[in-house]
Write a protein that binds this DNA or RNA. Structure first.
Length: 786
RNA sequence: GGGCCGGUGGUCUAGUUGGUUAUGACGCUGCCCUUACGAGGCAGAGGUCAGCGGUUCGAAUCCGCUCCGGCCCACCA
């Protein structure tokens, strides 16, 4: 076998994906004596196919992990999928053209499981296809029994610690998805709306004009607020006003949150129109008046508007107000509203019974924990801190969905007491399983909890989901884990929630360091999104270029940075592969003869330069800075080895001095091997192909040790610079005479540091094909050719 | 409103514990059919390091202000 003239990634890449799996190249060895490096691999949400953001962030973490593996760590790099909750339900609904809420619950869950089983192998294949060096035999799915058990156990433990409670509380609610959602699942959206100035009646019969964008909330109005210093309204504090159409009397109260600049400077408070209303509701102990149903209609508190959709009620109420001359002004505006990120529906705030994890009292602890984590890049910690400082709600962990991890909870029908499952019986489904013992009150009749857990309540346990797949004796070695890769948009929930759970359960951090990845944008620097139609699929990029080229591109960027898609960089990656391949073919052409070996100064210099780049790349990679490490490695390979060294040894390779040729081949092979190892973490396919052909048939490049590199010597560095300088001048001379670089030069006269030039003489002569060379001592370097 | 990141040749970018001619890529120009590679090789042009002020013998690098982009959070009656 020898290397083909052209490298064909379409054949080579699938071949190695298969072989690595067969050979167990990336298998975690629990019996290994090496120090362990454990990674909390993000489980992608099964909600479609792998997109560019995945391809880039997973490649970035993979490069770091591959480096650690070569540094001699036993790498624990599992894989998981996050496949429950709303995102997965939506996918299943789309694929099967059904609606979960319109189906029998069990049928829907069965359909979810069936659909997942069908689509998952292909889904996971995309991750294998980008060359992820995970041990795919260590795999979890957040809906499987293993994960259900751990998630339910977490619930029970936290409940017993007094960290969980159930409460009727104002909850952010999505009327489309018909579930409570978390603060973090909200998104801003610019929407057209209308400011309506409505007449309220004061006790003396005069009008009070209040501006609102939500007149349909008038029946929910429970108070009116103005700023305490607002001269216009000061005299009204303590008085009452009558709500138009609905006629309830509400107090007028001063509060600093009322903005005199907005609308008419006086505002109605409804339970609940927005989050400020909740603050006021709590602060001023206002009565509760809910007018909206859980599926987005008006309820009986809205009187004759009952049964109308929210938006229809708004229109109807405006019409009625107008017909009674209760509107003084209508003004079109665009404003930002909170919508549910998954469906884009404007959220409502409703009172409902939910489960919460109590953690607001621990904000300071979480801030301190955040400072103990090593953040890459460091400035991302600020987002974590801002989030914690801004937290105002406990963590609502119940969702009124179907496909998720059920609460291991029943309620006694007789006394209402909560009945928890036993940990040894987990996982349970309270809808089909029954408690094993009676209630304290003696009753045997239970009502199951129908809600499911927020997916983040489960995925905040990923370190345990992965570690507990292994034998118990390993748990302490694997956890806390070494590294968590995390995209910057989910610092506030996945990362934060994992810290929360790890602290609550174990009083420890879940990992030592986190690496934060950015987003890939379209070529113009805009967000990629289906609605804009500017999505670039990694599968297509791989088809057109190759996995290695894609990996080359996405590792150009530093951690945490957003960056536009650039086709040019894929071409650049392809060119690099071409260059690597041809260098390998060049090496393959030349074989050593005999045992003698005689080095030149060029050999010593290139080894010295190699040592330099190893040192530099290692330093960068130890800081997880793969992009700068890569730049150094590639510049060395292309700019020093290919452009200079190889040209400097050709005269020896094609000459008849065996000892000199042997030394050149040996040096070239050594330098190239270390380059392969270093580039291998970025471009694992082409490097493996070359390594097996040129160096070692039976072992993987990716299980070799990272090059150590010897001492860097200043003298050799200077010699190399001088040598390159003279070679470059020779090239310029030939160019200026329009001569081929292969042509001979009759005579050269070089003035400079004589002793140093003497040492370089042979290499200069050979490389530039100079017949006669004269050296002279002088301060400045001067080169004359004839 | 609070905060974070960035602004370096036409484009993207390295370099920030201050120190000789500011890194590399793409693009551009010219030359080379050189036995690894034309998706190549060799060479060249192109920069007041966003602006202003300060610290210093010396600033892309440190400090202050301003402008411009991007992002996060809060607000969004």
């Amino acid at each position: 076998m020898s290397l083909s003239k052209r490298y064909d990634p379409k054949v080579v890449e699938p071949k190695w994906i298969k072989k690595w799996e067969q050979e167990g190249t990336y298998k975690f060895n629990p019996k290994s004596k090496k120090p362990i490096y454990s990674v909390d691999t993000p489980p992608p949400t099964v909600s479609g196919r792998m997109h560019m953001g995945h391809a880039s962030s997973y490649t970035q973490q993979d490069v770091i992990v591959r480096y650690k593996r070569m540094k001699g760590y036993e790498v624990f790099y599992p894989f998981g999928t996050d496949d429950n909750g709303l995102a997965t339900e939506r996918l299943v609904e789309k694929l099967n053209n059904v609606k979960g809420s319109k189906m029998d619950r069990n049928e829907f869950i069965k359909l979810c499981i069936k659909t997942l089983k069908e689509i998952k192998p292909e889904f996971i294949q995309d991750w294998k296809n980008i060359g992820m060096s995970c041990d795919f035999s260590i795999m979890y799915s957040t809906i499987d029994d293993h994960c259900r058990r751990i998630s339910q156990r977490s619930f029970i433990e936290l409940y017993k610690m007094g960290r969980e409670y159930q409460m009727e509380a104002p909850t952010i609610w999505c009327p489309t998805c018909e579930t409570a959602i978390a603060q973090v699942e909200l998104e801003d959206k610019e929407l057209e709306s209308e400011f309506v100035n409505v007449k309220f009646k004061l006790e003396d019969g005069s009008d009070l004009i209040i501006a609102t964008t939500r007149p349909e909330m008038l029946p929910a109005c429970v108070a009116i607020f103005a700023h305490p210093d607002d001269k216009r309204y000061k005299k009204l504090f303590g008085k009452k006003a009558k709500v138009p159409l609905f006629n309830q009397e509400v107090p007028i109260i001063p509060d600093e949150h009322a903005d005199p600049e907005k609308g008419t400077g006086i505002v109605m408070c409804c339970t609940f129109g927005d989050q400020t209303d909740i603050e006021w509701y709590k602060a001023h102990k206002l009565p509760l008046r809910i007018v909206i149903t859980k599926d987005g209609f008006m309820n009986e508190n809205a009187g004759k508007y009952k049964g109308l959709k929210i938006k229809d009620a708004r229109k109807k109420i405006i019409k009625d107000l107008e017909s009674k001359d209760l509107i003084t002004e209508r003004k079109k505006i665009t404003h930002t509203v909170n919508v549910h990120e998954r469906c884009g529906t404007e959220i409502e705030i409703l009172e409902s019974k939910q489960w919460f994890i109590k953690y607001l009292d621990l904000k300071d602890v979480f801030l301190k924990l955040g400072r103990k984590i090593k953040w890459y890049p460091e400035y991302m910690r600020v987002r974590y801190e801002n989030w914690i400082k801004g937290l105002r709600w406990d963590w609502c962990i119940s969702r009124q969905r179907f496909f998720g991890v059920p609460f291991p909870v029943w309620y006694c029908k007789k006394c209402g007491e909560i009945k928890l499952a036993e940990i040894k019986d987990l996982p349970v489904d309270p809808l089909t399983d029954k408690p094993k013992t009676k209630c304290k009150c003696g009753s045997n009749e239970f009502e199951p909890e129908k809600d499911v857990l927020d997916t983040w309540a489960t995925s905040a346990l990923t370190p345990k989901l992965a570690v507990e797949l292994m034998d118990k004796s390993l748990w302490d070695k694997l956890y806390p884990m070494d590294m968590r890769p995390n995209a910057h948009d989910i610092i506030t929930f996945w990362l934060f929630n994992t810290v929360v759970k790890s602290y609550l359960h174990d009083k420890t951090l879940p990992w030592k360091e986190v690496i934060i990845s950015g987003h890939m944008q379209d070529p113009h620097g805009r967000k990629m999104s289906k609605s804009k139609g500017n999505v670039i699929a990694p599968q297509d990029v791989i088809k057109k270029y190759s996995v290695d080229a894609l990996r080359y591109f996405v590792t150009n960027v530093s951690l945490g940075e957003d960056y536009p898609y650039k086709e040019q960089e894929l071409i650049r990656g392809t060119k690099l592969m071409n260059k690597l391949w041809n260098a390998a073919r060049f090496i393959e052409m030349h074989k050593e003869k005999g045992n003698e070996s005689k080095e030149t100064i060029a050999d010593k210099c290139i080894i010295n330069e190699l040592n330099k780049v190893i040192k530099k790349a290692t330093k960068y990679l130890d800081k997880n800075d793969y992009s700068n490490a890569k730049k150094g490695i590639i510049n060395f390979f292309w700019g020093e080895l290919a452009d200079y060294y190889i040209e400097m040894i050709k005269y020896r390779l094609y000459g008849d001095n065996d000892a000199s040729r042997n030394a050149a081949i040996k040096t070239l092979k050594k330098v190239y091997l270390d380059i392969l190892k270093m580039i291998g973490i970025y471009m694992p396919f082409i490097t493996e192909e070359i390594y097996r052909e040129l160096y070692n048939k039976n072992e993987s490049l990716h299980n070799q040790l990272w090059p150590k590199g010897g001492k860097v010597e200043k003298e050799l560095e200077d010699a190399w610079a001088l040598l390159k300088d003279i070679i470059s001048k020779g090239r310029q001379y030939k160019l200026s005479k329009q001569l081929s670089q292969a042509s001979e030069i009759e005579k050269a006269e070089i003035t400079g540091p004589l002793e140093k030039l003497e040492a370089l003489k042979e290499v200069i002569k050979g490389t530039l094909r100079i017949k006669e060379i004269v050296l002279k001592e002088g301060k400045e370097l001067k080169v004359n050719f004839k």
